[in-house]
C-alpha cells in the first residue's frame, strides 16, 4: 500500500498536465464515481480519457413487488419523535411509473483487465439520522475511508457483516463520528443496527471507480469507461443480481436496461 501511494504521488504529479477530471460525482449518487487521474504502472494500464465513454441506463422491475414492511419505532422514544408518520422499510424504491427501481447498485464486475486507478482521496460517509441509515445503498473503494456518523440523539451501534472483509461492531453513542476502511473488494457488505432492528444499509466495496446507485427513477451512469467489453451487474437487496455484457467503443455512450422480476422469477436484461 505504501509503495502504491508513493508511486501514485510521484507519477501522478508527472502526469498532472494530461489528467482529465471528469466531474466530482459522489458514490451515493446515481452517477458512478469518476475515475481519478488516470495513472498507469508498469503492471497496469491507465485510462485514456480521450477515448473513454459512458454507460448509462435504467433499472426496472417487471411485475408487482411486495409492499415495504412497516416499521414500529416505539422501542425508542427518540426515533418516535423523529418520525411522526408511518414508517416503512426502504427495500423496494419503485418510481411513480411503477417500474423504475431505485437503490440498485450497478457496477462493472469484469472486463477492466489490468487498468489501475488512483486511491480516492475523498471520504465516503454513512449517517445514522432519524433512526435510518443515509444512504441506504452506496458504494466506496477499497482503502477509502468511510466516515460513520451518528446524528441522532440516541444510541446506535453499527454492525458490518461482510463475508471477506473483517466483521466489526462499533458503539455509536451520540454524537459520534468514527472511521473504517475496507481492505478487500466485496459486493455487498450489509450493515445493521442491533439497537434498532429495522435499520439496515448496504455498501459495495469496489476496486475500481465504475459503480453507481440508481436514483428514484431507476437511472444510473458509469462515466469515463475505457473502450472494451464489460460485464455489468445490477444488485438489489431482495431481487438479487442480474448482469449483461456491454461492448463500448471509443468515446461511445451506451444505454442499457436491467429488468428485475419479483422474487420467484428470474431477472432478465
Amino acid at each position: 500500500m505504501r509503495l502504491q501511494n508513493f508511486w501514485v504521488s510521484t507519477v501522478g504529479l508527472a502526469l498532472a498536465a494530461s489528467m482529465v477530471a471528469c466531474g466530482g460525482s459522489k458514490e451515493t449518487s446515481s452517477t458512478s464515481a469518476t475515475p481519478e487521474s488516470p495513472a498507469g504502472t508498469a503492471a497496469g494500464q491507465k485510462v485514456d480519457a480521450a477515448t473513454a465513454g459512458n454507460v448509462t441506463g435504467t433499472v426496472t422491475v417487471d411485475g408487482a413487488v411486495p409492499k415495504n414492511e412497516a416499521i414500529k419505532m416505539n422501542a425508542d422514544p427518540a426515533c418516535m419523535k423523529a418520525n411522526k408518520d408511518p414508517q416503512f422499510q426502504e427495500t423496494y424504491m419503485v418510481g411513480s411509473d411503477g417500474k423504475s427501481l431505485g437503490n440498485v447498485f450497478v457496477y462493472v464486475k469484469d472486463g477492466l483487465g489490468n487498468y489501475v486507478f488512483d486511491a480516492p482521496t475523498e471520504t465516503a460517509k454513512i449517517d445514522q439520522q432519524n433512526c435510518r441509515y443515509h444512504p441506504h445503498v452506496f458504494g466506496m473503494r477499497v482503502g477509502q475511508k468511510l466516515e460513520i456518523v451518528n446524528s441522532d440523539p440516541t444510541m446506535h451501534n453499527i454492525h458490518a457483516m461482510p463475508k471477506t472483509n473483517s466483521e466489526f461492531n462499533t458503539a455509536e453513542p451520540m454524537p459520534m463520528k468514527t472511521e473504517h476502511v475496507f481492505n478487500t473488494k466485496e459486493v455487498m457488505v450489509p450493515f445493521k443496527c442491533d439497537v434498532h432492528g429495522w435499520m439496515n444499509a448496504y455498501v459495495g466495496v469496489m476496486d475500481n471507480p465504475y459503480y453507481a446507485v440508481t436514483d428514484k427513477d431507476g437511472k444510473f451512469e458509469l462515466k469515463s469507461l475505457p473502450p472494451g467489453t464489460y460485464t455489468i451487474e445490477a444488485w438489489h437487496e431482495k431481487l438479487g443480481v442480474t448482469s449483461q455484457s456491454v461492448t463500448l467503443g471509443a468515446k461511445e455512450t451506451k444505454d442499457v436496461t436491467f429488468t428485475f422480476k419479483p422474487v420467484g422469477a428470474s431477472a432478465t436484461n
Partner: peptide
C-alpha cells in the same frame, strides 16, 4: 456498556435492543 461502567449506564439510554 457504551464505555460506561455497566452499573452506572444511564437508564434513559436503555432503548431498543440495549434494553
Amino acid at each position: 456498556t457504551y464505555g460506561w461502567n455497566m452499573f452506572t449506564f444511564p437508564p434513559q439510554h436503555w432503548v431498543g435492543g440495549i434494553l
